[in-house]
Computed example of a mutant assay.
Amino acid sequence: MEHTLRLAQQPEADALLGRSPLAALVGMLLDQQVPMEWAFSGPYTIAQRLGTDDLDARVIAAYDPDAFAALLSEKPAVHRYPGSMAQRVQQLCQYLVATYDGDAAAVWTGVADGTDLLGRLRALPGFGEQKAKIFLALLGKQLGVQPAGWRSAAGVYGEEGSFRSVADITGPDSLTKVRAHKQQAKAAAKAAKSAKPGPRRA
């Protein structure tokens, strides 16, 4: 089943994210230290360079590591750190092949509840606690994956009507709101850090 996503802000790249569970996972994996649109357009760029319209976990898992790194490093690069991210994408795909027979959607198919789903996402290479919760929220809010307790398992990212993460982005307006929230959070964290008292002098 295809879904409409607006994360890459490019029709072809967003279409791939909406129809390919693996593309959505890879986009989420790439979403760090680069603008969101850059990260989520990455799966489409990778598919194009592989000469296909989709991503196949088995193909990527078995790809020569040096050649795959070179693929992601071509201009324009898929990520600010294409070499290390190429390795992470391959590790993710190798895990999916070993654990889910290469079927990315099987990560969330038939889960018992939101906590079970969060555990599966956290087990994915490259997915820490926060990334797992954000992706869980994306699944629930935009991809129709809503096991019992999914909002609770996603924490603040599962809140209805929030604008905290990629899970809440459905177009330019919501993208602006999420960016504003992140800037406010970053400013608050910086202010809190500078407000901490320094070490006492003897």
Rank of each mutant, 00 (worst) to 15 (best):
P199L: 11
S84M: 06
L92I: 03
L118K: 12
V78T: 15
L117F: 06
V166H: 12
A67K: 12
D103R: 11
P21L: 11
V34L: 09
C93D: 06
W108S: 04
P82R: 02
R151N: 07
L55C: 01
G140M: 03
H3F: 14
L124Y: 09
Y100W: 09
D66H: 10
S194I: 13
G119T: 11
Q146Y: 00
L143P: 06
S174K: 03
D168K: 06
D14I: 08
K182W: 09
R6Y: 15
M85Q: 11
A13T: 07
D173V: 09
A137F: 06
A192Y: 09
L7K: 11
V26P: 14
A106S: 12
C93Y: 00
Y81L: 07
V178M: 05
L139M: 10
A47T: 07
A69Q: 13
K190N: 11
V156S: 11
T109I: 00
G158R: 07
G114A: 08
D56F: 07
V156P: 13
L71P: 12
E74Q: 15
L121S: 09
L92P: 11
L72V: 05
A106R: 09
V78L: 10
A180L: 12
A86K: 01
F68S: 04
Q33A: 14
P76L: 08
L72R: 03
G126N: 08
T170I: 12
V145K: 02
A57Y: 02
A106K: 03
A188G: 10
A104F: 03
F135N: 02
I134R: 11
G83A: 05
L50N: 05
D54H: 13
A167P: 12
L22P: 10
V107H: 05
I134K: 02
R201P: 14
Q9T: 02
G161E: 02
F135L: 11
M85S: 01
A188S: 12
G51A: 03
R58H: 14
G171S: 01
R179I: 08
V145P: 12
A77H: 07
G158F: 09
D101F: 00
A67V: 09
A112Y: 00
S174H: 07
K133E: 14
G171Q: 06
A189E: 14
V111K: 02
F68T: 04
P199I: 08
D31R: 08
D103W: 00
P147V: 07
A132Y: 08
E37S: 14
P35Y: 10
L139F: 07
S20Q: 02
L30I: 09
R122P: 11
I60G: 05
D116N: 05
